[in-house]
Amino acid sequence: MPTIRPMTSADADAVLQIYQEGIDTGHATFERDPADWAKFDAGKLARPRLVAQGDSGDVLGWAVLSPMSSRCVYGGVAELTIYIAAAARGQGIGKALLMALVEASEAEGLWTLVAGIMRENEASIRLHEACGFELLGYRKRIGKMGFGPMKGKWRDIAWMERRSEVVGVG
């Protein structure tokens, strides 16, 4: 199993490369290209940001959180993003990384994590379900693909949520 550790700016190239691999599937994001590191960094919460690192030191996957809203009432709610390197998929790395992110998010006082996953990304939906996320429903025709094998097609997004059992339970 990989080592799960905090993401640093030294991981930027590997993180953006793995993001590109996800983009290339056509089922991970509406984004056509990964942002540069400064833009990526600016849109995420400072903590937690995690990477899964293999024995040889290579980054095998990453997980980060973005604020759900700037309104204070949503201060404990974040949207998660998780990507696993193509060569590392199907090895349990995603589950280890996502569960570590859940634990780290609770340590930061977050009580709800949400995820928007393209309907066709069944592996990601199963991963989230295995980590305690509930499928709330589908946001139908939420966006039109601008690239890839589904270019020009409207996409449905599975909306999933995990409510902490230790933070915000009172």
Rank of each mutant, 00 (worst) to 15 (best):
L127H: 13
Q53C: 05
G75C: 00
G148T: 03
G54Y: 02
R89S: 07
G109N: 09
D41Q: 15
H27F: 12
T81C: 04
N121C: 10
V77E: 03
A10D: 14
F40W: 15
A78L: 09
A86T: 08
G94M: 08
E79I: 02
L50D: 12
T8P: 11
F40R: 13
Y74M: 06
L135F: 02
G143I: 03
A38Y: 00
T3D: 11
G109C: 12
T29D: 04
V166C: 08
E103P: 01
Y19I: 04
F133H: 06
V102A: 12
L50P: 12
G132N: 12
G116Y: 02
N121F: 08
R49D: 09
E122K: 12
M160V: 11
A42M: 01
E106A: 07
M160G: 09
K140V: 10
R119L: 09
T112G: 01
K151P: 01
M7C: 14
L97R: 10
L97A: 13
E108L: 08
A10E: 15
T25P: 06
V114M: 15
G75T: 07
P34V: 01
S70P: 11
T81E: 09
M1A: 14
M1G: 13
C131R: 12
I125K: 14
D41C: 03
V59Q: 04
H128L: 14
K144P: 00
Q20R: 15
C72K: 14
L65R: 06
K140F: 01
A123P: 15
G61S: 07
V73L: 07
L127G: 13
D24W: 07
E108G: 03
A78K: 04
C131Q: 10
P149G: 04
E21C: 01
G152D: 06
G57F: 05
H27R: 10
K153I: 07
E103R: 13
D58I: 00
T25N: 06
G168I: 11
G43P: 11
R5E: 11
V73W: 00
T29H: 04
T29G: 05
Y74G: 11
N121Y: 10
R89A: 03
R49Y: 05
C131V: 11
K140M: 09
G94E: 12
S124L: 12
W154K: 04
K39Y: 01
M150L: 08
G143V: 01
P6G: 10
I157G: 00
G76C: 05
A115Q: 06
M1W: 00
E21D: 09
T8S: 13
L136T: 06
R126Y: 06
A63P: 10
M145Y: 00
L101N: 10
W37R: 05
P2Y: 08
R47W: 04
M160S: 11
K140G: 00
W111N: 14
E134V: 15
R71D: 02
L16M: 12
E31D: 15
I18E: 06
T25C: 04
I142C: 09
G109V: 13
V15N: 03
W37M: 05
P34S: 04
